[in-house]
Design a protein around this nucleic acid. Structure first.
Lengths: 132, 132
DNA sequence: CGGGATCCGTGATGATACTG
DNA sequence: CAGTATCATCACGGATCCCG
């Protein structure tokens, strides 16, 4: 019975996955943090509070949608604070919260590592592509 | 001329984006590293060499496709090594390279941070959702 | 039998246009 | 200026087949 077998496997996997998530909810947080845009936004905010347009220009390649979505998620997770100044035009400032500040150095280290080891990675890629 | 204006803006953004990438190729590496599956795979490999099936079970939620793809990319970037033992059945072991070992502690820190601060983030989410 | 390539449906993502 | 709404696209995940 191939279908029965497949169904069983799916059930087993589903149970294992749920159990795993239940015993380790931090997994979801890892998924959230290990996001390309999260890393870039937190890196950008490491220099201090930034306006929405500043972030948009700094990150240069992020769509408005993803920038807004990322900031909303980070705000919801208590990592960044959002301050609206109801002037004309509206001014919105984003800033790392104390909690966000504890994460920031780790993200900055990752970014620094990438900058330092970019050469080696590029070399590895050439070797790999050449061998292939 | 609205269209002309829009076209100009698009061109400017495109140039700015290219220039940014050209002056900072490490950005691509940050994008690569700041990936959910990359973080989980490197974390799993921090305990030592692992077989493909071990990784698949450990990460519990990753599809075969994404696991293979992630491992291939990491191998290409010189962060993990892939060793095939042509037995029956085939055995494939993955291991962090010296370069990967320099990145590993940073990833582990991120994971540790997530485990330590999960409670605060969960609390922040509840507050945020309640206010909304 | 384990590792992995392929096809295809779905959800996340990006570009564009529009609003407070 | 700081978003939201809409639509096109692409990467992701699941099922299936393949190869050693």
């Amino acid at each position: 019975m191939p279908t029965r077998n497949a169904a069983q496997q799916r059930e087993e996997l589903a149970r294992a996955y749920d159990a795993y998530l239940a015993s380790c909810p931090a997994r979801q947080l890892v998924d959230r943090i290990s996001d390309k845009w999260v890393t870039l936004v937190i890196s950008a905010l490491s220099d201090g509070p930034q306006r929405y347009s500043d972030l948009s220009r700094r990150i240069a390649g992020v769509s408005q949608k993803m920038l807004t979505q990322t900031l909303r998620n980070l705000e919801r997770d208590g990592l960044v604070s959002r301050e609206v100044t109801p002037s004309v035009p509206v001014r919105v400032d984003y800033e790392l919260t104390p909690l966000g500040l504890t994460l920031m150095p780790l993200i900055v280290h990752i970014k620094s590592w990438a900058e330092c080891h970019m050469g080696k990675v590029a070399a590895a890629r050439e070797t790999y592509d050449a061998a292939k």
